[in-house]
Amino acid sequence: MELDRTRPLWRQIAAVIISRIEDGTYPAGSRVPSALEISTEFGVVNATASKAMRHVREAGYTRGEVGLGTFVREDQPEGN
């Protein structure tokens, strides 16, 4: 996927992840890719991918489970 290098990359990546959750690419309860997998997919450093994933979690779309990964929440935020 081609990113617009004139805008914050983490915001663009977070928007893609949220879009994938909303369209069912990552269904409720499923594991989302790790920051390392995201950094590889988008060609960014791990810190950028981590920031994007943190934003997705803080927006209420995902939850983390220590040692297992990050999963799509069953109860999605409304109006996002």
Rank of each mutant, 00 (worst) to 15 (best):
M1L: 08
L3F: 12
L3W: 05
L3R: 08
L3A: 06
D4G: 05
D4K: 06
R5K: 12
R5P: 10
R5I: 10
R7I: 04
R7A: 03
P8K: 12
L9A: 13
W10K: 11
Q12M: 04
Q12S: 10
Q12I: 07
A14D: 00
A14H: 02
A15I: 03
V16W: 05
I17V: 14
I17Q: 01
I18F: 00
I18P: 01
S19R: 14
R20Y: 09
I21P: 00
I21E: 02
E22K: 15
E22V: 11
E22M: 14
E22L: 15
E22H: 01
D23S: 14
D23P: 05
G24A: 05
T25Y: 13
Y26G: 00
Y26V: 04
P27Q: 13
A28I: 10
A28T: 13
A28F: 05
A28R: 15
G29W: 05
G29I: 06
S30M: 02
S30K: 09
R31G: 03
R31P: 03
V32Y: 11
V32W: 06
V32M: 07
P33N: 07
S34E: 06
S34P: 01
A35E: 04
A35C: 12
E37A: 15
E37W: 00
I38C: 02
S39A: 15
S39K: 06
T40S: 08
T40P: 00
T40M: 03
T40G: 01
E41T: 10
G43P: 02
V45F: 00
V45R: 13
N46I: 15
T48I: 02
A49D: 01
S50Q: 13
S50W: 14
S50G: 15
S50Y: 10
S50T: 13
S50N: 08
K51E: 12
K51L: 14
A52E: 01
A52T: 04
M53G: 00
M53Y: 01
R54F: 08
R54P: 00
R54N: 12
H55F: 11
H55G: 00
H55N: 02
H55W: 11
H55I: 13
V56E: 03
R57A: 06
E58K: 09
E58M: 07
E58D: 15
A59Y: 07
A59S: 11
A59T: 05
G60H: 10
G60I: 08
Y61S: 05
R63N: 01
R63V: 11
G64N: 01
G64C: 07
E65F: 12
V66T: 12
V66C: 05
V66Y: 10
G67F: 00
G67V: 04
G67L: 02
G67I: 14
G67H: 05
L68Q: 10
L68T: 07
G69D: 09
G69W: 06
G69E: 04
T70N: 12
T70Q: 15
F71K: 09
V72A: 04
V72W: 00
V72R: 07
R73K: 12
E74Y: 10
E74G: 14
D75N: 09
D75S: 13
D75Q: 13
D75P: 02
D75Y: 08
D75H: 13
Q76V: 02
Q76S: 07
Q76T: 00
P77Y: 03
P77H: 10
E78H: 09
G79S: 03
G79H: 03
G79A: 09
N80L: 12
N80F: 12
N80E: 09
